[in-house]
Amino acid sequence: MSSAPLAAKSLLVVTGKGGVGKSVIAAALARVLADAGRRVLVLESDPRESQHVLLGCEPSGGGVVTAAPGLFVQNVDPYAAIEERVREQVKVAALSRRICRSEAFRTFVAGAPGLSDVAVLGHALRLVAGAARGAPRVDTVILDAPATGHGVSLLEAPALVADVVGGGPFGELARDVAEYVADEERAALVAVTTAEEMPVDELLELCAALRAGVGRPPALVAVNALYPPWPGDDAPPGPHAELWRRRRAVNDRELARVRRARPGVIAELPLLALARGPALVAALAEALRPHAGGGREGRD
């Protein structure tokens, strides 16, 4: 790859279809980078928090919590992120509260699509710049965004908002975010998929849209939850041998489709007999490490 390795970027946006393992992969990547000496924050933007279960810490509840030395978690509510921007503009607390609670403002926020994506990305940029209040300085922010149906929209949002909003602080914010996300030295997209038909369909659409938009595919595609390779003639006659063989055949077929799309790096990750939690994250981090391009001691 021409650009900096994943481990050297400051913003990683993790996207993918619902339930494919975005949150687990975001957590595992965070572990890999933290092990390599980076200070990492996983920014979760989903009302149902799961990073604390994965990284073994307290639930964030909106604040920054420490999961391990140099590894942090924050759950961010988009509306709160927007409110914070208003507070900064208006300065008088009582007035900004009135504005944010006014129905006109709520209508503006609800009616302007992409605005909450921009606010969350904007918050991520602040964290990277060390400018977020009450947050530690970090080298990398990993954004674990909720499934939107289509991962593209999160990345299209800044340009869209910048275009329709025009001036004002939100327009400027959107422009800053759009510029940052387009910079391949600093930001990268991590696409997570399972090797099944529908998620791969969506991944291929995402790759095509990215090529047309920012001109490059995702830096990393994590193909998650693969059945173990079928051992062929050595296979045991067990009761579910046939299911194993055919599920893996589906995996192989879909992996081939992913490869044909030529994304940056493909990481193949096994389906593991582990429940959601730190042990699963640790095991996936081991499998991801060689693909992150950081090296254990390499502080880039």
């Binding site: 208003v86 503009q89 208006v90 504005i99 503006f108 009616g111 302007a112 329709v164 909003v165 025009g166 001036g167 004002g168 602080p169 939100f170 327009g171």
Partner: peptide
């Protein structure tokens, strides 16, 4: 002035 500062009047106009 403050509406403009927060959301930008152009945007409000479009909305």
């Amino acid at each position: 002035a403050w509406l403009d500062r927060i959301v930008g009047l152009d945007f409000l106009r479009e909305m």
